Amino acid sequence: MNIYDLIIHDQPTIQLENIFLPGQNRQAIQQLIKEHRFIHTLHQYGLPVNNKLLLYGSSGCGKTTTAKGIAGAMNKPLMILNLSNVVCPRIGETAQNIKSVFDKAAREGAVLFLDEFDQIGKARSDDDKDVGEMRRLVNTLIQLIDYYPEKSLLICATNHIEMIDAALLRRFQLRIRFEMPGTKELDNYYEQLLAPFPPHLQQIDRTYNISFAEAKDMAFTQVKSRLIAELELHATLTEV
């Protein structure tokens, strides 16, 4: 397996201000971006710059979108790797693959986004099966994170923070939780999604108690259905 074939290279166009984030989360992310903007001055004062961020919580609530928005705001290339595609039967090979990705991101000064972080960051147990290879993988990952250069940014995402090894969790200077949106947040999101369409296409049945990703799929499905119905009616009338 060529690990580089699994990396998605992205030049983000998503504006951070257009991403729905609670005030506390937005403030923490803006602080992170500003630290990198003034990295040289902070170093002159002997101050470290945060460059390890963990996004965790409900699926479909904006973790990947937020990573893209951060990379865009920092004007850095984004490297995306889904760790569920990386794990090999031979744990040693997995560790080497992960190291290659870290090295590449460090050389390029990129934002490295590791999705499904729990696939390789699972807590080490006393189970005989885990003692050797899995512990070595987690130890390798700890070392890679510890020595990841400040000029680059590491963002990891998981839906299952409870599965992550405690020693790994301590490496992240920032941990941001993503929760299911409430009614107000979803209404604002629906308004943003529907704004580009004509008023008659904006009249959809809104669903709540779902994630942003689910809301987007449901909204666009209804818009497409209405639009297609109009096109079919127009075609029928034209034929007549």
Rank of each mutant, 00 (worst) to 15 (best):
M1I: 07
Y4E: 10
I7C: 11
D10T: 12
D10W: 02
P12C: 14
Q15C: 13
I19A: 00
G23P: 06
G23A: 15
Q24A: 15
Q24Y: 15
Q27G: 00
Q31A: 12
I33C: 12
I33R: 05
E35Y: 09
H40F: 11
L42A: 04
H43C: 04
Q44I: 07
Q44E: 13
P48V: 01
N51F: 07
K52C: 04
L53Q: 00
G60Q: 07
G60E: 06
K63A: 06
T64F: 06
T66W: 03
K68L: 08
I70H: 03
G72W: 12
A73H: 05
A73E: 13
L78F: 07
I80A: 00
N82E: 09
N82A: 10
S84E: 14
S84A: 14
V86S: 02
I91F: 11
I91K: 05
E93T: 05
A95C: 04
I98P: 03
S100V: 09
V101A: 06
D103I: 09
D103N: 14
A106R: 12
A106Y: 08
F113V: 01
D115H: 07
D115E: 04
E116T: 12
S125C: 03
D126L: 05
D127H: 04
D128E: 00
D130F: 01
L141I: 08
I142D: 04
Q143F: 03
L144P: 03
I145W: 09
I145E: 06
D146Q: 15
P149L: 08
P149Y: 13
K151A: 05
S152A: 15
L153I: 08
L154M: 02
I155R: 06
T158A: 11
T158S: 08
N159C: 08
I161K: 13
M163P: 01
A166N: 15
A167R: 04
L168K: 02
L169V: 10
R171L: 04
R175T: 11
I176V: 15
R177M: 14
M180T: 12
M180C: 04
P181G: 10
G182N: 14
G182C: 09
G182I: 11
T183G: 01
L186W: 11
N188Y: 15
Y189W: 03
Y189L: 03
L194D: 11
A195S: 14
P196T: 09
F197M: 04
F197L: 11
P198Q: 05
D205F: 10
T207G: 06
Y208P: 02
Y208S: 05
N209E: 11
N209G: 03
S211V: 03
E214N: 00
E214S: 01
A215Y: 03
D217L: 09
M218I: 02
A219Y: 13
Q222P: 10
K224C: 07
S225D: 10
L227F: 15
L231A: 14
H234L: 12
A235E: 10
T238R: 12
V240M: 11
